[in-house]
Design a protein around this nucleic acid. Sequence first.
RNA 1: GGGCGUGUAGCAUAGCUGGAUAAUGCAUCGGCCUCCUAAGCCGAAGAUCGCGGGUUCAAAUCCUGCUGCGCCCGCCA
Length: 598
Amino acid sequence: MIIMQILRSYVEPVLGNALSKIGIKDDSWKSMLTPSREHSQGDLSLPCFPFAKILGKNPVAIAEEIASSIEKTTEIGEISSAAGYLNFKANPKWLVSELLSNKIRIGDAFGGKPCTGRKVLIEHTSANPNGPFHVGRARNAILGDTLVRLHRLLGNEVRAEYYVDDMGKQVAVLAWALENLSENQIKEILRDSNEISPKWKNKADHTRVRWYQAAQKLRQDETESAQIELDIAKLVHDSENGNHKVLEKFNNAFHPVLEGMLTTLKRLGIEFDEFTKESMFVTNGDVEKLMKALSELDIHGVADNGAEYLDLGSRGLKGKTEFYFKRGDGSSLYATRDIAYHIWKWSQCDELINVLGEDHKLQARQVGLTLKELGHKVPEVLFYSFIKLPEGKMSTRKGNVVFMDDLLEEAKEHAEQIVRQLRNEYNEDQVSEIAEAVGSSAIRFNIIKVSPDKGFTFRWEEALAFEAGSAPFIMYSSTRARSIAKRCAELGLDVELICQKGILFDDITDELPDSLIDLLRCMAIQNDVLLRSVEQSRPNLFANQILNLATCFNGFYRDCKIIESGEVNEMYLQISQLASGFLKSGMEGLGITPLERM
RNA sequence: GGGCGUGUAGCAUAGCUGGAUAAUGCAUCGGCCUCCUAAGCCGAAGAUCGCGGGUUCAAAUCCUGCUGCGCCCGCCA
């Protein structure tokens, strides 16, 4: 149930009537009737400037004329004009009764329906399993998981996928190193690098990455590299030809690393429904079939050594237009396998979304154009810009990197300090539980709240700021609401029963505090914002909504005492509980852990 | 060199399907805990929305040129 759309459905007929009376007959004004920019003026506004020319009148006068010709209704509480704008304000009493009517399923943009019937497949993260997450790589996982959660909140059936790169050079390097280098050799090769943190010496993503790094270093070393390159090339070649023994070796090499990486993500509330291995499309023949199909396209071309490509220039690609899908030796490339993967994904969903770093833009374009060429739909892609450090680009090699595991620990410790300071009555288990939730939620929110296409500079002070504008701020509002409900229950009230009662329009007082009305309006648009956030794949829009909701709740909390000298105001309690529910579902949508107390 | 993205108070950001006085947090200054959790609330101050042109009744928002920054332009992944 989308309240503001309901309001619109009441406004449009009366407004259309009024407009046709003064000579505006067509419907073009409908797109001009938009949510008010100036929040204090109304909920829906119509700028009357375009009518000025048509009617030969001053827009201010037109707005006034229309305003005075429309009668208030139960739903429309106020029609006013200001500076050429015609403003409609929802009747607060109507908002209260509508919101408390239990017709709205919290967090569900489509009212009573449990499901939209849409199957959405979201592929995100898919990081090469060769080392621990740093905050840069984690932006993908956090954005992707938030998108997954928001789609679920909307009622879509979602599958979260991790595409595992289990073949090719990167894994080959890791596998080679694990087989050929001893622990002592690693120590020697990496003697100039940072030591592994003792905290993570049992976490395979942190330990095995050293083998990977050592191998990378050796490969650059002139004297050693030739034979290593040959060895690795053979492994790569075998894996690409679907050699089971080699693929198993690769699997044994990266699997513990992937497990370690997933442990980190789990701590951030991120989980996957399915892992799909890249090698599957080689071993099941899909890639072979695909390359054959591509060879038969009009835009297909062959290089001197037999390598094959598509010339996408005629399909709108600029710059270098050749898109190679087959090497001279006949083997496939990463992008080719990715296309096979996409065709497979399309066979099991209605909507396909990929979360990719901005460095993949060209590649994604090539994949998209090729899919189109083959008669498939093009997936939607959420691109994000990279996270950098104040010192510059994040680079494991240069040691200029912040590991997600360290950030999580640091955030938790910081939160623990604050909890101990603020609530010395909590025991250590409580402190730890709260701190863990606060820490990981804050990290997530810090990243979600900024627009994906914006570059992001990671700063410790910001990641560890738990004030207004952060996840803990939202969590705090939510615990306030819960604490009130608990108090009411302690006073012997059946809170749930009271909330089910709703409230009759005529039983609502005419004088409602502004902050209460603000909270109502904020709740009224929540599902609209959710829908927009999902449609545009912009989690930051919804993050902002929940921040506003928390702020509005705090205002309501200030002005509307629910319990006053032992007496409970039932309407306030119902509104508080509704807000509590909106906060909770919103937090779940963002991956913020709701707490009972903090 | 070409393509894509980005530039908004001291800092970090929101707004960019054109519309009213450009919103929020941090930092700065001032006020609020005998009152449902002060991780909070209220107030003050702070912006030539990168620069120049254009379209429009109306531009932070659309178009165009310039400029700073980022990413990409492998028969790598």
